[in-house]
Amino acid sequence: MDYFAQQLINGLVLGSIYGLIAIGYTMVYGIVGMINFAHGDIFMIGGFIALISFLVLVSLGLTAIPLILLIVLLVSMAITALYGWTIERIAYRPLRHSFRLAPMLSAIGMSFVLTNFSQVSQGARVKPVPPIITGGYTLHEGSQGFAVQLSNIQIMVVLATIVVLALFTWLVSRTRLGRDMRACEQDQTMAALLGVDVDRTISMTFVIGAALAAVAGMMYLLYYGLVDFFMGFVAGIKAFTAAVLGGIGSLPGAMLGGLAIGLIETFWSAYFSVEYKDVAAFSILIVVLIFMPTGLLGRPEVEKV
């Protein structure tokens, strides 16, 4: 039971990170209808920028950890958001009304560009950081000497996810931008006729998605203590899997899917085999889609004849 509880905690933390990335996929898909293959790499860039800014701040002599973390968070969100904006501008906007596969391949190309850009600029080796947030609580002391641990960093990841999600939900449901986004999702032409600046709204979607991915990237860095240029691919595929599992286009679905993938992966590693954890996640995706072709919370597709 203790072991189970511990895995549950670990799974939820991992799932939060996947969920944050998955929202970016699902938002872009909802509005532009394309799979933004470069989004996983945006997450990776977010991790790198957090790492570098952290390093710079420390060497500048800052010592207050909370202040450093706050600055790092804001800097990496801002710069990563600019990456999102630029990519949309360069690689996707010219293909907005083109054939479906063209933006997708452009996105795959962009993903290669980002992966290799960070490999070239920052080297291929894994970048470790010493644990920044340490300590934690022992929730329950088991009889066989196994204790359920809840570390401070885990608390922080979950808290950050909740805060960011709350902000994000407010943004989408209560602000003018959120209304524009939902309008564009329904019908871009109509939204444009009613005075919504479609280009700007789509740009903002990429910006917000990238900012959320940056939060995920920073959390990943703090939680696992390392970044490397290739981490975007695997995390990206998992997060996209999460978005599809939850029902692509659905924001709560993305978070739910993220948590589901995180839990599946953790429990499979804990009880079966670590090697096949990704196989398990992908297999469950396939099985879920066979029985629920639009994912867990996706709207069923009504076939108009």
Partner: peptide, 17 residues
């Protein structure tokens, strides 16, 4: 791979079909 990625993006923009 960097150049390959850039080429892929440019080619798609140039000839989406």
């Amino acid at each position: 791979m960097l150049v390959f990625g850039i080429a892929m993006v440019l080619l798609m923009i140039w000839r989406p079909r």
